[in-house]
Nucleic acid binder design. Structure first.
Lengths: 218, 218, 218, 218
DNA sequence: GATGAATGAGCTTTCATTCAT
DNA sequence: AATGAATGAAAGCTCATTCAT
């Protein structure tokens, strides 16, 4: 009698193991044999589920980013208002990256690879998450503007800036060996941005608190 | 009698050609023969000047970053006051990256490689530029705070945030196929940050101008 | 289901082909591709069985010396007494080298290599056979002394001398293009040694026969 | 004014340095640059004096063997009678090899190379020394037979055997890491051979002394 | 479906030799 | 004569992928 384990489950299993090895060794240094060994299967078996090493790389990135999006989606949904949704996104980012500290360099490798490969699926997958975050950012920005919290701002430009800042902090964190607390950096960032965007009323309300955060740094 | 072209000049020549090929094809896809062909020299000749392919990669990055730092150094020096020095840095970044649009993806590859290789020189070279920018940022931030333009802020944290934002914008620009104007993004960024940091007096002075920029987006 | 040909058999197959090519072309002149071609397999396949070219060299030597030792072991076992065991060893040496005349130069290359490589396994394999022959020589020498055939002699020194003489004759044979009959040289050697070692009684018995052999030369 | 140092002297200088490096590193591992560095000259200069690396190898061997032959020639000439000439040859061999212990492995490499190269000069140079020693051996053997010291023996076969034994002892000495005293081995050898060859009268005279040497070993 | 033995294209690097100066 | 920068053929080894079992 055949095992009940279906193809999709085994595929996921492989991706999970591949993620571990890729993260540990890096994409180029990882041999298919390493992954097979880690997953305790034959080298050839991987090819029953993935056309090539590249596809496996893509699947690993897809797994991570899907989990990331899902995390944000849940947190945002559970948040009552726009302001706390913004907090939820920030917390999700911090939590996600912090919990995957070891894997972080692989994201850089993925981006680098995406820019070089002929396979458009790589950049598309990157774009997909970026679009998800952008749309969410635009929606929340508009809500905050409409609610009078934020001064009038181009929502698209601001959402992109926010996303860019997040990436920039993440990049710094990775390149500096994850030597500073990611959450502090995100909080500090929000204080600066907050002060910049807050409408006069909201600003008056929060100026002291944000100002002291600025003074404190990380 | 020594050759007319001295070793250092030939070395630079090789680095320049290597930069072209690396930028075009990517580090991993580039073969030493490609570089030799591009430079119109023998493959073996490269090894008279560089111990290994990896060294050549480092030399290329070093060349670019040295030029970048030099550009900023000159611009900053030529600027009369702190505020215009900040503008100078921003302009230098925009100009540098824009003029090297094609080479940008290679920077990602370099960072990815630096995080994986055993050779510490890679991360050290990255740190070197980051430190240069950070120190400059700290110095200018303090001047702006002292001059009353900026509200009190932790200079180190703010300088790092600024650098991170720049990297983040650059990253977005690269990953999105350089599909938006880099200068606009930097200007928009500065408006947001500016509004956030400006002390009440300065804010009153600039609020309108910055506010309209926010509204306009990229 | 495993392949019909097991790994050990294929390994032997490769060693056998490698022995042919090494013997024909010499170690340094032999390319891995040559061996692969001779064995009618892919270049990469060799590396499934041997870590490096050097290992293959060692395996070839090991094969030969194992066969050599086995030949001597069988012949000695089949000989009824010490004197005929000595003859058996001599015959084995002659037969072994004569049947491998073409391969002989490779042994010199192996020795030369063993003296240079960092890998201690090479000298160890050489020592292994030398020890086997020495121990056998010591044992037989003692038996011949005890039986009164030989005059009293330091068995270790004599066994080593015997082995050395064999090597010397072999060396001369190789360096002189195998231009003299190996068996005659070994017989002549034994006549000289015999006369030197024989105890007075045995000497009286054999003096005429050995003397005429001395006079006759090769 | 040109230096007085003539070409031949500089050539010798190079050979001497090459001998050092070859002996230290082995023929294959030695780079032409190593030799140039050792001789404190330019790499290209070597090629003014030698067509190729191989020629340099030959020259090194030629130098050593010429010195060896010359040493024997002088010692033999200085010896009053055949018996002491034989001692002189033995002493010369021991002295020569012992004083060049470090270089010994290179001789093996040379022989191995000679058997493989297309260049006949290598085997010819080897033959040249062998012939010199053989002729000397034949002459002395005949004198010893004629003088009644030796029993009647085929001089050519005996001379070759003697040479072969010397080589064999040398080979053992090299392969066993020069771990036994070369002179003792040569003396022991001579005791065995002596006993074998001595004519009855001479034997009676020397039997005791040689017998005790046999018993003593190395 | 699962496997792993077999493959060979393709890589970086070495180094003896050349030759312009 | 002396040099050493330039060369490129060459070689060992790797590893993603295939495919017979």
């Amino acid at each position: 009698m055949p095992a009940i384990v279906d193809k999709a489950a085994k595929r996921s299993e492989i991706v999970r193991h591949a993620a571990d090895v890729f993260a540990r060794t890096g994409y180029h240094e990882t041999k298919m044999q390493d992954i097979a060994t880690e997953a305790d299967i034959g080298k050839g078996t991987i090819y029953e589920y993935f056309r090539a090493k590249e596809q496996l790389f893509l699947a690993v990135y897809d797994l991570w980013m899907s989990e990331y999006e899902e995390l944000i989606r849940q947190r945002v949904e559970a948040s009552p208002d726009a302001m706390s949704k913004v907090d939820a996104i920030r917390d999700s980012a911090v939590e996600f990256y912090a919990s995957r500290a070891e894997q972080a360099p692989l994201l850089l490798e993925f981006w680098a690879h995406a820019l070089r490969t002929d396979n458009p699926a790589f950049l598309e997958r990157i774009t997909s998450t970026r679009t998800f975050l952008r749309d969410l950012g635009i929606k929340l920005t508009r809500e905050l503007v409409d609610a009078g919290w934020f001064t009038d701002v181009d929502a698209r430009a601001f959402a992109d800036l926010e996303a860019g800042i997040s990436d920039g902090i993440f990049l710094a964190w990775v390149l500096e060996g994850r030597s500073f607390p990611l959450d502090k950096a995100f909080t500090f960032r929000q204080s600066v941005i907050g002060l910049g965007l807050l409408a006069p009323d909201a600003r008056a309300l929060l100026a002291d608190k944000l100002g002291s955060k600025l003074k404190r740094g990380l």
